[in-house]
């Protein structure tokens, strides 16, 4: 636990330096990054990724809800109650089969079947949303691969929402403050008419904190880190376990991974196959 925190702080520090002060970028509208951005992910730099362990999530029925609450409270995400038309969400759940509906899971393990699965922006390595934006109001940050969003530049055309294959983006159909009871003054509220989404908590990373949803998880249910660091926890997990990504066939290279195997079963039947399975898996 201690070791991973140290690794994480190191990583967060790198990220903040690489982004030339992430918080100032966000406040000033990210203009400097946006004009020079849109390069490929720095293969020798940091590539942030998230690994969600669905088996661990299935053991704690309320954990997903706590993750959502922590995120939405930290980012002033409005709650319009039972009004799907105006809904804004950064992280939410769908049952497992819906989350991976294009993969057609049938007759699956009981602990996955219909289980609420956390969904958020995948911070794709090859993001279709940034490609279509006519004003570079959304872009992939060179320093760590986070798909950023500039709410001061967005013209509200919603082309990015149309281009996202994961439904991860929300548009503010009305004034979001109408859906907020307490406002966290540490984070800006948005105005109506712009698109918003998860930013991997870039503002918390810049302060040396973990993303809000990761912080809620005390038992590594979500692991966050640098995919380019072979010793990182995310890499360890991906090497040892079987993980899938949403719609990986589209070539967007989503950077949120879902561990679906059951380590007990794998150990019992074929320990050697674990490694093979992981390497030949969906995340190659």
């Amino acid at each position: 636990m201690d070791g991973s925190r140290r690794e994480f702080l190191k990583l967060a520090g790198l990220t903040a330096i690489g982004a030339t002060g992430a918080s100032s970028v966000r406040a000033s509208g990210g203009a400097s990054s946006a004009t020079g951005g849109h390069a490929e992910a720095s293969s020798d730099g940091v590539r942030l990724a998230m690994v969600v362990d669905l088996r661990k999530f299935s053991r704690d029925g309320s954990l997903a809800e706590r993750c959502i609450e922590a995120c939405h409270r930290a980012h002033n995400v409005p709650d319009f109650g039972d009004d799907p038309k105006n809904e804004v969400k950064w992280i939410w759940t769908e049952d497992f089969e819906t989350a991976f509906h294009s993969q057609e899971f049938h007759f699956i393990r009981e602990d996955l079947k219909g289980k609420p699965t956390l969904l958020l922006c995948n911070h794709c390595d090859n993001p279709p949303c940034t490609r279509v934006c006519p004003t570079q109001a959304t872009w992939k940050r060179d320093a760590d691969g986070i798909v950023m969003m500039d709410w001061h530049r967005c013209i509200g055309c919603r082309y990015c929402v149309v281009a996202c294959p994961y439904g991860s983006r929300s548009f503010n159909w009305k004034n979001p403050r109408l859906g907020l009871e307490d406002i966290d003054i540490n984070f800006p509220t948005r105005m109506r008419g712009v698109v918003e989404k998860c930013t991997f908590c870039e503002e918390r990373l810049a302060r040396g904190q973990q993303p809000a949803c990761v912080e809620v998880c005390s038992n590594d249910e979500i692991v966050f880190g640098d995919l380019n660091d072979p010793g990182s926890k995310v890499r360890q997990l991906l090497a040892e376990r079987m993980a899938i990504r949403r719609k990986s066939g589209l070539g967007t290279q989503p950077e949120v991974y879902y561990v679906i195997d059951d380590p007990r079963t794998l150990q019992e039947f074929a320990p050697a196959a674990v490694v093979d399975g992981a390497e030949g898996g969906d995340h190659a």
Binding site: T135, R153, I155, G156, C157, R158, N172, V195
Partner: peptide
């Protein structure tokens, strides 16, 4: 159809 029609010039200020 634009959410922020006041920012329409951004299309020309940041040609993409």
């Amino acid at each position: 159809d634009m959410g922020r029609p006041d920012r329409i010039l951004n299309v020309f200020l940041h040609p993409t």
